[in-house]
């Protein structure tokens, strides 16, 4: 087993034993984190510098672009891993495509940042983009049926595919273009079917779920696992000062996509 991952899980276990951190549950990716059902994970209001944040577990991610520069193959692996695990169909053409995590240029990923005089590396590299699992998600606010909602136990912005009526209000509301709609039956376009995760039917919206189903089994998100050993993607509880993801955040300068929209994205980038 990979050394780094071991450390990662061990650290999570140690946190529990030591009773560090307010909600005394494992916060990273092991089973008890999500199975133990913390009752303290309710949405309170932390006080930041003018930005209120949810308290309780809030899963998030740091994407270290330095590991992806010149290594687009790694990015392709992460995307392929996600799409294979979640039965994401490969529908040709822009019109009906479905994507949970995909790659795009800096100018597209970071529209609010200046594009002027960027380094050649930044200009010529592809950036992974996915649902930001915002702390204050506008998609959740607009959904008329609560088919998309924040899981209070871990901060994941989740989808109930069986309740979604397909009004696509969430697609209009998302400032990151993270959501896809099934304009037709997606099943004929699934290359190899993974029986462990449900495929979707036509007429519903879908997006990245931070691998909630894998977290419940003690596994890391598929994209993070695909980058194992590189440190390109670090995943964990943003509200736990001891977590690896917080360690990275406290050491490195990071940016978020379109932070001006006020949704408080949980995905950070080291560019």
């Amino acid at each position: 087993m990979d050394n780094k991952r071991r450390k990662f899980l061990k650290m999570a276990g140690a946190t529990v034993l030591a009773g560090i951190g307010a909600p005394a549950v494992v916060k990273l990716t092991s089973v008890p984190a999500l199975a133990s059902g913390s009752e303290q994970a309710a949405a309170g209001h932390g006080s930041g510098h003018g930005e209120e944040q949810r308290t309780g577990i809030r899963l998030g991610m740091v994407i270290d672009m330095r590991k992806f520069y010149g290594n687009e193959e790694l990015l392709n692996q992460a995307i392929a891993a996600c799409h294979a695990v979640h039965n994401v169909p490969e529908i040709p053409g822009r019109k009906s495509e479905i994507k949970w995590i995909w790659k795009t240029g800096f100018a597209n990923a970071f529209v609010a940042q200046s594009q002027n005089l960027r380094s050649e590396t930044v200009k010529n590299s592809q950036f992974p983009v996915l649902c930001n699992h915002c702390d204050n998600p506008s998609c959740v606010k607009v959904c008329p049926t609560k088919a998309t909602f924040v899981n209070e136990k871990n901060g994941i912005v989740a989808m109930d595919y069986h309740r979604c009526i397909g009004c696509r209000f969430c697609m209009a509301a998302c400032p990151f273009g993270a959501r896809s709609f099934n304009w037709q039956d997606p099943r004929p376009f699934i290359k190899t079917y993974n029986p462990d995760f449900p495929s979707r039917m036509r007429g519903v919206v879908e997006k990245c779920n931070f691998c909630a189903e894998r977290l419940a089994l003690g596994l890391e998100p598929a994209c993070v696992e695909a980058c194992q050993g590189t440190g390109a993607m670090v995943f964990g509880d943003l509200n736990d000062p001891q977590s690896e993801v917080r360690k990275v955040l406290s050491e490195e300068f990071t940016i978020q996509r379109n932070a001006a929209a006020g949704t408080r994205p949980s995905v950070f980038y080291i560019v």
């Binding site: 397909g166 007429g203 519903v204 919206v205």
Partner: peptide, 8 residues
């Protein structure tokens, strides 16, 4: 316009 009109 609904993708799943029966769930309206």
């Amino acid at each position: 316009d609904l993708g799943q009109p029966l769930r309206g």
